[in-house]
Every structure is written in C-alpha cells, then in structure tokens.
Design a protein around this nucleic acid. Structure first.
Lengths: 344, 344
DNA sequence: GTAATTATTTCAAACGTTTGAAATGGAGTT
DNA sequence: AACTCCATTTCAAACGTTTGAAATAATTAC
C-alpha cells in the first residue's frame, strides 16, 4: 500500500507520514527536527519511514513559514569573464555549506536587463544580493529596493564609484598595480607605461594611483606621455599603444595594463608592426588568464586578483548581514589583496 | 498611515492590500490576476494601490499553492569552460521569458559533488533538470530520482554513453568533425591526422567517425598511424603529437583536434621543437575560443559548437516536458549542428 | 413588483510546514 | 483517592497565495 502510494507519485508529505504512522503531523515534524520533547523510539520510527519513503521536506512550505527563501541572488555582467565565474565558485561553496542556494542572473552590462534581474530576484524573495553592477549603472533605485525591504546587498568588484553608502568587497587593485609597477622598477625599468581601462569603471582610478605611487616611492618621475587609456575595443587599444610607443620620443621599456585581454591586443599590435626591441618590453596585466601559456610573447607576470577570495568574502559578509551579526546600516568595506604571479 | 506601514517594513501582502481597500483577499487576488468576473473599476483601484505600495507576490506561497517552484536546475561540470557558460546564456534567456528561473550547480567533474547537487535541487523541488554529467558518472541513481518523482531531466552535451533511455540534446559532433575534415581535404590535404579526446567522454567516438567518414567519402585511405588520443593533460598531448608527427614516416600535413585547448598544446609543442614546415600544417579544433586571435600560429578554422543553441534546445525541450506537451517517457534526441568558422 | 438573470464579491479550503500552547496519560507522592 | 509533576503528544493557528462554490448585489424581464 505504501509502495502503491509512492508509485502513482502522490507526494510524500508530513501528513502522509503521519497517517501511515498513526500520529499527528506535529509529532512527525518535531521528530524529524529532533525536538527534545519527542520520545526516542518515536523519532526512530519516524525517521526510518521518512528515509524509506524518501521524504523530502517541501522548501516552498518551509520558506513560506520561515519567511525566508534560503536563496542568494547574484547579478553580474556576464559569465564569460573568468573573473566572475571564478568568484562564483567562492560564493557557491560557502553558501551551500550554510544552507543557501544561489541564483545567478547576467546583466550583459545592460542597465535594462540589470533592472529586470533585480526585480526577478526581488519576486523570488532572495535573502540577500551580491552584485557587480553594469558599466552603465548610474541610478540605483532598482538595487536600493532591496535594502528598503530589509534585504542586504553586497556590491563586489564593480561598485558605485561615488561613495554611496553600501557594503563593498573589492579587489585591492591599488596594491596590485603598485606591486606590479614595483616589480618592473626592481627589474631596472625606468620608463614604465600605464595602459588604463574605461574611466567609467570605478577602480580604474585606483589602479592608476597604484602605478603613480610606486613611481613616487621609488623616485621615478611621472610623465603623462607614459599614460594612455582604452576600453575593450581593440581599435582604441591600438590608438593608445601608438601614443605610448610610436608617436613619442619618451619610449617605455615596460607596460602595466588594465586587464589582460587589453594587454594581449597591445602585444599583438606591437608584434604586428615589428616594433623594435619588441621582445625586450616587459608587460604585466590584471587577470592571470589560463591561456597565457599559449602565447608566444607572454606577459612577464600577471596580477592575480583572487576572484574566489573576493567571492568568499562577499558571501561571508552577506551571511553576517542576513543573520544580523552586522547591522545593515553599518556599511563595511573589505579589500582583497592581489598577488603578483611571475610567469615562466 | 500607508506610508508608515511601508516604513517599518511590514510586508505588503494581499491581506494588507485587502484591508486598505476594504475588500476581501480573494477579490484583490483576482483583480491582480485579471479575472474576468472582477469589476473593471475594482481592478483599477487594486492595481493602482499594488503599484503604489510595490506589492510583490510572494513566490513561496504561490509555489506552495501551485505545487511548482518555477525553478529549473542545471548541473554542469564547471563554469570555466566557455562551452558551458555560453550554453547557460541560451537557457537563461528562454527560461526567463517563460517565467522560470535557473539555479546552477557545478559538479567540478566530481561524482560526489554531483550527487550533492542533485539532492539539493531535489529539495528545492525544481520543475525540471538540465544536466551535463561529470566524467565519472556511471551510476545514475541520483539523477533517476528526478524522473521517478515525475520531474523531467534533459541530458545535454555530456550524456550517458550507453544508450540509456533519456532525453538528450547534443552537439552534432559527427557532422562538425566531418565538415572540418572535408574542409582540409578540399584544401588539398591527403594526410590528415586526428587527435582524439578522452575515450570516456561519450562523443569522442562520434567525432572520430566524422573524421573517418569524411576520408572514406573522398576516397582517402585511413591509417591508424594518423590517429592518436589524449586528454586535458598537456603531457599526454605531447606524447600523442610525437606519435603523429615525429615518430613516424607517415607525416601528416593537417590536424583535426578534439578541443581547442588540446590543439593549442599541440601547436605550442610543435613550435617549441621547431618542427619542419611547421607553418604549413593546417589545424582545426572544436571550440572557437575567443583567444584565438592572440595566438600567432592560430588554427586555420574552428568548429563552432553553438553552445547557446544547445542550451536553448535543451530548455525548450524541458519546458515541453514540464508542460506535458511531450510525454516524459517519449524520449527525445535533438542534434545541434556545428558550424565551421574559418579564421583570418 | 416579483422573479429570473447576470455581475460581482466573498467564503472557505487547500498547498506543506512550524511551533507555542493545551491536552493527555502515567508515575510518583501524600 | 486525589494531587502534583513530568514526558509526550496533539491542537490550532499561521505563513501568503489560489480558486471553485456560495452569497450577495445589481440589472433585466415580464
């Protein structure tokens, strides 16, 4: 009879177990949750039957009762950037360990999609949100809704550039860039170029400062001729590289770049024009892409941003906020150090 | 008064709206769901207040009532392989359009983690599952649970190699490999090597067959000297390449490889040993990696596997199964064609 | 003006849990 | 025999929706 019930897939609920065992639903519930007031023998009987019938508590019911979803929302620009996929790994691991599941949504760097994602996650009543904002996010109404409803939000990596009060977990991009520049200085370079990224991404400036400060701390002069900016469009990178390497007499011998794909575009171009002393130029970029070993003029080192650690820090902070171990208005800022990885 | 209630974040529920409007909960519910029996004016009033107070229906409650979670589970080996992240894009788009959210879990090619993921998704009562199994999955008990509970499962890309009855969406890897081989033949190559992947991945054999058939259809002889197998370990790729290119008199002039990273390892090695006529060798691999443009001995073409389309097909099939437009026991097999992308 | 019809709203149960309060059934005490 | 006390179990309400059936109000027909 029990088997029969299983077969025509009537769901196995507390009520069903209770009927089989001829006891009340609450006894069954409490037995499964190991309440001290329940008799040991009763617990055994209940747990045994539950196992036998593959009882799975219905999460929707629990969530409704507990007014929790046990869901963490993540909004990020895309899953094609390994920084983000690696960061998810850190989030997922820690979240799962603590009984939360994650629900990922890509904004594709589009504000409209980001708003949609936010609303979707809101409808799903996520217990918290981790977000790397799109390039175009200036207005935060769709994200502020969460805090207004008491749902904590942690901004990570990409975050509001103006100092909006919010929880942040960031790569210590200043330190990373400082370290890379210092490394090149220690190798004897005097003229180190800096190839910056889109100015609208908030940490662009921090990286530049890392570069500047390393120069200053080592008594090297700063020259604006050695600095250029680009974005992810290879054309613009080529223009920037022309400024730095060909249309100048202040020729650099080393280069620190905003991000590896940009650096690769730069290297590709220099190589394509047979730039004199090309293989003397030492380059470093943010990223530590796994493909580096296939390049045959690879960067000398990479600035590893430890995305897993950024993710882990973000979820840890978020869980503290959810559990009210930290007050939601007591805004936190966590920096995760970068690490210089020397190749070869 | 209304504002006050909003402020101390009492949740805005149907009941709350009903009280404000002095009508019953069911009227409010029906008004929001646009029931024809509800008076137009009433609908207006309800919808206006709902908008004003940012009413968001509680999904847990709806899910409980409807016995649905509106959640699609995805289990895949990892998010670092662009094939998978691109496939997710296809899934996400279509799922969202149809009112489903996706919840992604990585197995890291570990059976134990895959089992955990499966159980987690089961507890969350996903309405359907899309899965690319781990390399080590031989036993399917943890995945069969879903169908036993009436939850449809679509295997995609990686799927049970023996012809287990199940729904499958696969890249037409035979056709892709055939096309690539044919392309090389048409360019005049007579000796085309085939570098295969791990034999435990089910579609390895299909690719090989594509290669073989292209040779046969074009009256080229097959030689086992021109075939070698490897996995993702560069050491093994080097051994395979030695067999194919150096320890033989039957020297190939072209190469079809199982996957691009493997092909890159091969190219890197041949280059490193200054293989004679290196730049005459024409290579093709599965993948169409975005990094190809940075290589300076890039493959002549890529076999684009259209992961987005694989994803879209998987979710479309899954939704048909969920909606019972296709019987769950009426096992489907969908092939998604590859496309040869010629570089340069 | 009453009955019949139609439009609209409300009732009430259900989905599957959790949990404090109340009830039950002994055992131990006097 | 009546009482207290404890262990254990059950009751009942609640979480926020949905939805068919029932009730009510408004309109039309005769």
């Amino acid at each position: 009879m029990i088997l029969e019930k299983m077969m025509n897939n009537t769901p196995v609920t507390l009520k069903f177990l209770a009927e089989k065992l001829k006891m009340s639903v609450s006894t069954v519930s409490k037995a499964l949750n190991n309440y001290p007031t329940i008799n040991e023998y009763t617990k055994q009987r209940v747990q045994e039957l539950a196992r036998e019938l593959h009882f799975l508590p219905n999460k929707s019911a629990i969530n409704l009762k507990e007014r929790k979803s046990h869901l963490i929302g993540i909004i990020l620009p895309n899953l094609l950037d390994h920084f983000f996929t690696r960061s998810i790994y850190g989030v997922e691991q820690f979240a799962t360990q603590n009984g939360y599941n994650i629900i990922i949504s890509q904004s594709h760097d589009d504000l409209e999609k980001e708003i949609q994602s936010a609303n979707m996650l809101l409808r799903n009543r996520v217990d918290g949100l981790i977000v790397a904002i799109s390039k175009h996010t200036q207005d935060f109404a769709h994200l502020n809704q969460f805090e207004n409803m008491g749902i904590p939000v942690v901004y990570y990596t990409r975050n509001p550039s103006f100092n909006l009060s919010c929880h942040k977990v960031l790569g210590n991009t200043f330190q990373g860039c400082y370290q890379a520049t210092k490394f090149l200085i220690d190798r004897g370079h005097q003229k180190i170029a800096y190839l910056g990224g889109p100015k609208m991404i908030n940490f662009t400036h921090d990286r530049f400062n890392g570069y500047i400060n390393a120069l200053k701390d080592n008594q090297l002069p700063f020259s604006s001729q050695l600095v250029a900016y680009t974005d992810f469009d290879p054309e613009n990178t080529i223009s920037a590289i022309k400024k730095l390497f060909t249309d100048t007499e202040n020729v650099p011998t080393a280069l620190v770049a905003f991000k590896e794909p940009i650096l690769f575009d730069a290297i590709k171009y220099l190589k394509s024009i047979n730039y004199p002393n090309f293989n003397k130029i030492e380059c470093i970029g943010f990223g530590n892409t796994s493909f580096i070993s296939y390049l045959n003029s690879p960067p000398i080192a990479s600035i590893e941003e430890n995305p897993e650690s950024v993710g882990t820090n973000a979820i840890k902070l978020l869980l503290q906020l959810i559990n009210k171990e930290i007050d939601i208005r007591n805004y936190q800022k966590i920096m995760v150090d970068c690490k210089l990885v020397v190749h070869g």
